[in-house]
Nucleic acid binder design. Structure first.
Lengths: 216, 216
DNA sequence: GTTGAAATTAGTACGAA
DNA sequence: TTCGTACTAATTTCAAC
């Protein structure tokens, strides 16, 4: 009832993709930059730091949330302090045409913090946080290995997390003129089509992995 | 500013480990659980959801922040919407005794969202977000390859991020009795010492990597 | 640790530029 | 659109229990 960040008071109540039309300008970026470092800042303070009025800050803030640019606000918890001192990466090779099963099983594993489908020799990378090494072992050998969709796994332990930035924004790399396509006048920067990707030494996705989401 | 081990404004101004004395109980965990999903919830609403009084919620909230259990509050931004549509993992082999250099160079690369030191055949894993594939290529071949500490890299693209949980807590796996050591009476669960780690198929850290933080 | 007050601040709804 | 102001509602703080 007293939730601060509920989003019922917006026009579109569509759960999926909404508001793809919001063009982000420099002020939007600045707002994101502040918010990713201090997610609990008041909108008034945000307006002051960005250099706009409070009313504008409220409007933009709400627009960013409604459009899905800001997906959620979260607290970063020290997992060691919370009792999960061990972090491991599990690289999974998934049996073809069983991706749907794999995803379904993952959803039932709350200890998995992150899972990404990747190119390369493995199909997916999973990051898990566990109280001890034995728990990782149990997870991999008992729970993951018992999933039919899992063909093979390779586990690696994280010794230290050097850095974890809240979120990377384009402004971090270099001030791009605008998130639009470059005008035909200026010399086109190197694109994916004219760059020697072979130098990157990455392995393409295994065959049959192109269709990730619609699978039996 | 984006180093992980920063300790924001709190009573004790010690930069390193502070407040190691806070023992987390079930209510603390519940607070973390709520806060990781909704970082902008008011303390009043938090108290209501957790089932304690407002004052207690404030006390515990502040204690969690001061003790570093809650490291920061952040906004999760849709990187695609923000103009960074490509995510890649770069596995780096670091030249021995050049870890300090490697870390220093990483600090100057804002496009790096995450970096972890791992066991296995590679030494570090970096997650980068870029506007296009060409930018990844440029980063790897020009910026990373030019670092003396970097011996070799292997790049993999992320095709889809299946899940990203705000933060995993022990309560997610199963209700553990307490984050303390088990009493001698109960049968000890399998620990790291008596578990066949060989079945996990993970490769140990390369030699000379044990000393990660104090290096020349 | 909890309840209930006051003081402060946040969020909203208008106008005007 | 953005800004500035006033109004309303909420939160935070501080008191006593």
């Amino acid at each position: 009832m007293t939730e601060m960040s509920s989003t019922p008071a917006s026009g579109t109540g569509v759960p999926g993709r909404i508001g793809i039309g919001l063009q982000l300008d420099a002020i939007h970026m600045k707002i994101l930059q502040v918010l990713r470092e201090n997610g609990r800042i008041s909108v008034a303070a945000l307006a002051e730091r960005v250099g706009i009025s409070r009313a504008s800050a409220y409007t933009r803030f709400e627009a960013l949330r409604a459009d899905g640019v800001i997906k959620r606000f979260t607290a970063e918890v020290d997992h060691v302090r919370a009792g999960l001192g061990i972090t491991a990466l599990v690289f999974v090779t998934v049996r073809q045409q069983m991706w749907k099963q794999f995803r379904a099983q993952l959803a039932q594993m709350p200890e998995v913090e992150y899972c990404a489908i990747t190119t390369g020799q493995h199909d997916a990378m999973i990051l898990v946080r566990m109280p001890d090494v034995a728990a990782v072992h149990a997870l991999v050998t008992e729970r993951l290995a018992s999933i039919p969709a899992v063909k093979a796994t390779e586990t690696v332990f994280i010794l230290d997390e050097v850095l974890k930035r809240p979120y990377v924004l384009p402004a971090d790399s270099r001030p791009r003129p605008s998130p639009r396509r470059p005008s035909p006048a200026e010399p086109a920067p190197p694109s994916a089509s004219n760059v020697p990707l072979g130098k990157m030494r990455f392995v393409g996705a295994a065959e049959g992995r192109a269709d990730l989401k619609n699978d039996t």
